[in-house]
Structures are given as C-alpha cells and as structure tokens.
Simulated assay, not measured.
Amino acid sequence: MSDLRIQQPDGEATLKDWQHVHNVIIPTHFLSLDEVRERAQRHHLEVAYRGDDLIGCSTVRPPTDDTLTVTVIARVLAAHRGQGFGEELYARGLSRARELGAEVIETVVLSSNEDGLRFARKHGFVETDRYLLPGDSIPWIDLRLA
C-alpha cells in the first residue's frame, strides 16, 4: 500500500479530517474541534490518506494506571473498507501500544458498527464489557486482545 500516507494531525486541516472520520463512524458521540485538539494532547492520533482521499483515523490511548492497559482504535470510512487500510492503521496502533509498554491491549467499538466488531474479533479481541453512556441508546463494547 505504497500510496497510503498516515500522519499525526499537524494543523487545523488534519485535525478536521480526524474529527470528520470520528464523527462519521461514531455519530452518537460527536466531537467538536476543540475536543479533538484536547484529545490530541492526551492521545496519539493519526489520520490516513490515499493520495488526496481521506481514508480513516486512529487513536492510541496511553496507559492511565498500573495495569499498563493501552486502548487502540482504528477507524476506516465505509467506502475504503476491505482494502487493507484498517490493517495498516491497526498494526501502527499495536506498535505504538508496545512502545508505551502495554501489557494489556483493548479496543472499544460502538455496537452498531458491525464492520468494526468483525474486524476486532478477527484480530483476536474478545468482548469484556457492554454499556450505555449517559444519554446514549446504542451500547459501546469494550474488547480485550486475547
């Protein structure tokens, strides 16, 4: 996939691209640009392009406690799924998680995202929790790499 370009958001345009992918794939949890900027300070964010086309984005949440649990999330826009882009984003996220010393790797998927759930399960993740956030009607699913 030599024409795939993955980078950290480095300005307003790439932050807006990351925001767009997130909000399309997770319509129940709309993020403002200010919220994305704040996330970029706490998490490792990347955005993926093929040529000039926006493909997807990823998030790696570093460990916040003694368990060294790192959350890796890869998102690919529907029109670009099934072409290996998710594999590349996921591999980069796993690599980053290992650099952060992860002992446990988790992901979280909106239950309505059947493609995302299928991808996670295919890659060895198993469901550990299912819950609703306040005001939500669609459950979130936490999964852990077995």
Results as ranks from 00 to 15, higher is better:
103 E>Y: 01
65 D>F: 04
68 L>M: 11
77 L>W: 01
104 V>E: 00
43 H>N: 15
66 D>A: 13
37 R>M: 13
47 V>D: 09
31 L>K: 13
89 L>A: 11
38 E>A: 15
65 D>M: 00
40 A>N: 15
54 L>E: 01
60 V>Y: 07
74 A>S: 15
117 L>H: 09
59 T>V: 14
116 G>F: 02
95 S>A: 14
60 V>T: 04
71 T>R: 04
41 Q>T: 15
67 T>L: 10
98 R>E: 05
87 E>M: 09
96 R>Q: 13
99 E>M: 05
43 H>P: 02
67 T>I: 00
43 H>M: 13
113 N>S: 11
92 R>P: 04
82 G>A: 03
54 L>K: 11
123 H>I: 10
79 A>H: 06
99 E>S: 06
113 N>V: 02
106 E>G: 01
38 E>W: 09
56 G>R: 07
31 L>N: 08
70 V>K: 05
122 K>D: 13
45 L>N: 03
55 I>N: 09
49 Y>W: 06
88 E>M: 10
75 R>N: 15
68 L>Q: 11
112 S>F: 06
73 I>V: 15
34 D>I: 04
114 E>T: 02
61 R>N: 05
115 D>W: 05
102 A>I: 03
42 R>Y: 08
110 L>A: 04
86 G>K: 09
71 T>M: 12
71 T>P: 00
113 N>H: 10
38 E>G: 09
92 R>Y: 08
86 G>A: 13
108 V>A: 06
81 R>I: 03
77 L>E: 07
116 G>E: 00
115 D>T: 08
29 H>N: 10
38 E>I: 06
102 A>K: 03
116 G>A: 02
33 L>N: 07
51 G>W: 13
115 D>Y: 10
122 K>G: 05
60 V>A: 04
82 G>V: 00
95 S>T: 11
60 V>R: 00
37 R>H: 09
71 T>D: 00
75 R>D: 13
85 F>G: 01
66 D>G: 07
101 G>P: 03
84 G>Y: 02
78 A>R: 07
48 A>K: 01
75 R>V: 00
39 R>I: 03
109 V>A: 02
47 V>P: 01
111 S>K: 12
62 P>G: 01
38 E>K: 14
78 A>D: 11
86 G>R: 07
115 D>A: 15
61 R>G: 01
65 D>I: 04
78 A>N: 06
58 S>E: 10
41 Q>R: 15
87 E>W: 11
38 E>N: 09
60 V>F: 01
85 F>H: 14
41 Q>I: 12
70 V>D: 06
113 N>Q: 07
109 V>P: 00
50 R>N: 11
101 G>F: 07
93 G>Q: 02
32 S>D: 06
69 T>M: 08
83 Q>R: 15
68 L>G: 02
61 R>T: 13
89 L>E: 12
53 D>F: 11
55 I>K: 13
101 G>V: 04
40 A>F: 10
